[in-house]
């Protein structure tokens, strides 16, 4: 299976091997389709390369339908977990809502 460096990754690529960080934490499950936001995030997290299969899909189709809910779900899950001990506090609830809103919009850019 072809492996490419992250700077050559393009939206629409189908990731066939799960991406982990150096602590073994899963950053992206196998079967995800890359989009701009994911590529940016993986780059930010220091990922060097991904193993992919070119699915014949072009960049256009990495739009709303193939937007991987999986990574978003993991980010949301971690956010909710970390906030759950303090969510009863009205200030922290406000912060949580705003952060969630920021992350959702960041994903769409």
């Amino acid at each position: 299976m072809p492996e490419i460096t992250i700077d050559k990754a393009r939206p629409g690529m189908f990731v066939t091997k799960q991406v982990e960080n150096d602590k073994g934490m899963v950053l992206l499950p196998a079967g995800s389709v890359l989009n701009e936001a994911l590529i940016a995030r993986l780059t930010k997290w220091g990922v060097q390369s991904v193993v992919y299969r070119s699915d014949g899909e072009d960049a256009q189709s990495a739009g709303t339908e193939s937007k991987p809910k999986v990574l978003d779900a993991e980010v949301t899950k971690r956010l909710e977990e970390r906030f759950s001990p303090i969510i009863d506090d009205p200030v922290m609830k406000t912060v949580f809502e705003a952060l969630k809103s920021f992350l959702e919009n960041e994903d769409q850019e």
């Binding site: 906030f83 922290m92 912060v95 952060l99």
Partner: peptide, 18 residues
């Protein structure tokens, strides 16, 4: 805020109440 945004490692994984 930075803890909530998961940037870096302050030594624990918690978000303190402001």
């Amino acid at each position: 805020f930075i803890r909530a945004m998961d940037i870096g490692n302050p030594g624990d994984d918690l978000i303190p109440k402001i």
